[in-house]
Design a protein around this nucleic acid. Structure first.
Lengths: 242, 242
DNA sequence: CAGTGGTCTAGACCACTGG
DNA sequence: CAGTGGTCTAGACCACTGG
């Protein structure tokens, strides 16, 4: 997709922010940005709104736009991928494939992925050699062409799929490690774990991946940012099951 | 805050969508909406973009805007509050206040709420008499004026606070129920639980509430929607702790 | 092809901040 | 007060969908 005017202005501003240009300080006014970028004020605003949605800047009417330094937002938008977090801590990420084969689609997977046969990969994620996640991924056979055992050990599924992934829905629950899970994760059997089920969609909204993730509770937590919240007796996103 | 043009158009459209007017079908074109609402196309678009961000509608270039019926999004945007879910199931929500008093701010709370003294409320949430959440809420004394024991048993904190809440950040982890928690929740001691810590912010971005929530694992799960995902070896929002 | 949404412009009025 | 962001208008051109 061709870059639009407001996207390239947003990129310019992102770079200038990353360079620490106004460290927690004011940005040029919309009129000035409009003049300096040779774009209308509306287009400049659109770029700024984009950066606001990314948590990079914020504004106050009658005052101006300023760079965000708020640690609260920092944790989520800036949280980034696990790889980025590990890199920040100087730790080494590693993937170990435990199983990798095409199988007939099990019924519980068939309700989500539209394919008779699926590639099923079981993989262990480690940080400095310590396992922190046991992952099972199901992928429709039609999309599994480049997904060799070596490829999925090196790269993420998202990078290997022959299409762009758009969004995902993940369910987060608590449970106890099974004997099998405990063994590969190196924790006592019956330890508490976080369980995540994720459905990944393509731009067409079709489900292209299903994955299950098991995390030792003492090593992991999820962080969710909610730009808007509604009055309720329980946190946003909670669902009662059964 | 006065209602803006695009907000009132969005409300009109929301009502018309709720009435099932175009059931999964096309909305009038932007030009038609512009004419029928007596607003410029830009303003109509702004209303539509708002609804899109709420997951109610979507668009395809050259085709039009249409109501979303996608079950995937259904689960999250449509998930709504716990109260709405319980009402859908014909179950009765109930709050029971276990403790309610002003205390000196504990250090771990002081790092988040800027107040010397805080109102601390311990509350049990039930569905048809069955407990599904044990909640502790801390609120700065300056904001606790209308928060009587009776009020917090009837209403949510968000409805009682003398200001508008903007967003929140929640952390989701797994653990085991303590003896005390197990007793009030009516589960065996050492059962797996979900633990949620939530920091609620006002429009000014100031933290106005801190809350801890404990949920029996067999009754509850969290659902998170991610409109965009990045390639990674672990799900979005996961953080390694310690 | 006519009609749609996606982007963009040059203007306008307003409420609000700070001095 | 002059300057700021928030909202809104009436136009324009384009890429795209469907028939």
């Amino acid at each position: 997709m061709r870059q639009t005017r407001y996207q390239s202005i947003a990129e310019d501003l992102r770079r200038s922010l990353a360079a620490g240009h106004p460290p927690g300080g004011l940005l040029p006014s919309e009129s000035e940005l409009s003049a300096s970028h040779g774009a209308s004020r509306v287009t400049v605003r659109r770029a700024l709104e984009l950066l606001r949605s990314e948590g990079l800047v914020d504004s106050r009417q009658g005052f101006g736009w300023f760079a965000r330094t708020d640690p609260v937002r920092q944790s989520l938008g800036r949280l980034g991928t696990i790889e980025a977090q590990l890199a920040d801590q100087g730790r080494r990420p590693e993937r170990k494939v435990l199983d990798h084969r095409v199988v007939r689609t099990p019924p519980e997977v068939a309700s989500i992925l539209d394919s008779e046969r699926v590639l099923r990969t079981r993989r262990l994620n480690l940080a400095d050699g310590q396992p922190f996640a046991l992952v099972t991924v199901w992928c429709p056979e039609a999309l599994a062409d480049g997904l060799t055992r070596e490829a999925v050990e090196q790269s993420s599924f998202y990078d290997l799929l022959p299409l762009d992934v758009a969004g995902a829905t993940q369910t987060i629950a608590a449970g106890l490690a099974t004997d099998d899970e405990a063994k590969v994760l190196g924790v006592p059997a019956g330890s508490p774990v976080l369980r995540c089920e994720r459905v990944t969609r393509a731009a067409s909204d079709e489900a292209v991946l299903l994955s299950h993730h098991v995390f030792p509770a003492h090593l992991t937590e999820f962080v969710v940012d909610l730009p808007h919240v509604a009055p309720s007796m329980a946190p946003t996103g909670l669902r009662l099951v059964e």
